[in-house]
Each structure stands twice: as structure tokens, then as C-alpha cells.
């Protein structure tokens, strides 16, 4: 049994509701809630029929619509003594729809920009490698480190599970002090990630080094750097007295673009 149904793809329940409102030219400030609820459920049923996974968000919105509908059916209670106007049960939904629509429009604007700027090209920086350029060090985030490790582990020749005989001394704590000792000797330019991993031949040892580096970065004892235009990660020691200055330096880099 095969049949084709044209089904637009929606980003979520709010997107679907906006579509329904636009399709029937409904007034967003005065949504006929029972009509829209019915149409919404029809769409959900269609999704079920097509065996599409219905995300929890759609179900939640269905419940919200039903709740609003039932509230609208209740007679308005005149609360004597209370000056506050009873809020339209739809108000919150309308607010969310409008907020969402704003960003949907902003996203369309970005999409148009993307179309134009994808077709703009720049001269490549091919000369730079010929110059003894001053190395611009970039601060690197944790994710770059994770990426680098993923790559290293994937590149390891023996990727199969093997039984590693792990000597007792392989601990994160032990590796941390070993790393610090090595970095203290090397001075401010630090070591590359590859150099640090030289002795590590097993997956396990690499993971221990990785955890040790993460821990050291967290304690602000080391800094992860990358030379501009190069993927190699460098690890340098942060001495306690220049830490504050270094941190500010990183921020200033961003501000320069203002």
C-alpha cells in the first residue's frame, strides 16, 4: 500500500499553529480556538496515520489547546470586589505565537543574507606561510580538545577491544602532576598535544591524559592554545601571577572586533 501525501514540515507546534492561522487568514489576536484546535488535531491524526513520530511538544500543545478551549466555554465569573480583569485564556498562547513569529521572520532575513554571502569569496591567506609570521595564539575551548582526542583515538592502530595490562601508577592524579612537571620545564611556549601523548600507547593511557588535561584546565593550571591557521593544540602552563592578565587578554581579543 503506497500513497503520497503532501505534508509540510513544521519546526514544531508553534510553527504548525502559525501555518494554520495564516492558511485561513485568521486574526492572530482573536483566534477561533475551537476551529484551530480541531485543525490541529486533524494534523496530529495525519501524522499518526503516516507513522511519523509525534514529538512530545505536539502533544503538550494539544493539551494546552484543549485546556484553553474548555476555559473559553466556562461562563465568565464576575468577581465582585476584585478590580482585575480576567485575562483572556488565549493571551499566553498569542504572546508565544507572536514572539515565535518575530524570530521566524528574523530567521528568514538571515536566510536571505546567507544566500548572498555564500557567493562572496575572499583572497586566501596563502602568503602567510611564507612569512615568519608572529604566531597568533588562540584560546581553545574544551570542545576543540575533545575533537582532538576523538581524532587521536580514531587514528590509533589498534581500535579493537584488547585487554590492557594497566600498571598501578596510571591514575589521573599521577598524570596531572607528571604533566605539570613537564610543562614547568618547557616554559611559556608549552608543548603540543602530540608531544604530551608520546608515551601513551594505549587507549586507556590516552584517556587518562585527556582527563588529567581537563582537570588541569578546570583548575586554571594550564591553558589550551592553538596557533592561528593550524590545528595543532598546544598546552601551556599558567603561572598563578599572570592568570588574571591572561584572562583579560582573551576578552580583549573579542572586543577588538567592535
Amino acid at each position: 500500500m503506497s500513497y503520497q501525501v503532501r505534508l509540510e514540515v513544521f519546526e514544531g507546534p508553534l510553527d504548525l499553529l502559525l501555518h494554520l492561522i495564516k492558511k485561513d487568514e485568521l486574526n492572530i489576536y482573536d483566534i477561533p480556538i475551537s476551529t484551530i484546535t480541531q485543525q490541529y488535531f486533524e494534523y496530529i491524526d495525519l501524522m499518526k496515520e503516516l507513522n511519523l513520530d509525534i514529538a512530545g511538544e505536539y502533544i503538550l500543545m494539544a493539551a494546552t489547546l484543549t485546556h484553553i478551549k474548555s476555559k473559553m466555554l466556562l461562563p465568565q465569573e464576575e468577581k465582585v470586589g476584585e478590580e482585575e480583569e480576567t485575562e483572556d485564556p488565549r493571551a499566553e498562547l498569542v504572546r508565544r505565537l507572536l514572539e515565535y513569529r518575530k524570530f521566524k521572520e528574523a530567521a528568514e532575513d538571515l536566510c536571505e543574507r546567507e544566500d548572498i554571502w555564500r557567493d562572496v569569496f575572499y583572497p586566501k591567506n596563502e602568503v602567510s606561510s611564507e612569512f615568519e609570521e608572529e604566531e597568533v595564539m588562540l584560546d581553545v575551548g574544551i570542545f576543540d580538545l575533545i575533537d582532538a582526542f576523538k581524532e587521536i583515538i580514531q587514528r590509533m592502530p589498534d581500535n579493537k577491544t584488547s585487554i590492557d595490562i594497566i600498571p598501578e601508577e596510571l591514575t589521573v592524579r599521577g598524570r596531572m602532576s607528571a604533566l605539570i612537571e613537564r610543562l614547568d620545564v618547557t616554559g611559556p611556549e608549552g608543548l603540543t598535544l602530540w608531544a604530551l601523548l608520546e608515551g601513551d600507547t594505549t587507549r586507556r593511557a590516552i584517556v587518562v591524559t585527556f582527563l588529567a588535561l581537563l582537570e588541569l584546565a578546570k583548575l586554571h593550571l594550564i591553558r589550551l592554545l592553538q596557533i592561528e591557521g593550524d590545528d595543532t593544540l598546544r598546552i601551556c602552563r599558567i603561572s598563578s601571577n599572570d592568570e588574571a592578565g591572561e584572562a583579560e587578554g582573551g576578552d580583549a581579543d573579542d572586543k577588538e572586533t567592535d
Binding site: E11, F103, K104, A106, A107, E108, L110, C111
Partner: peptide
Amino acid sequence: LSRPSLETLA
């Protein structure tokens, strides 16, 4: 970029 990506970026 996908629509969800553009929306999130916006």
C-alpha cells in the same frame, strides 16, 4: 543552514 538552525541563530 537548516531552518531550525537559522531560527535558533536568530
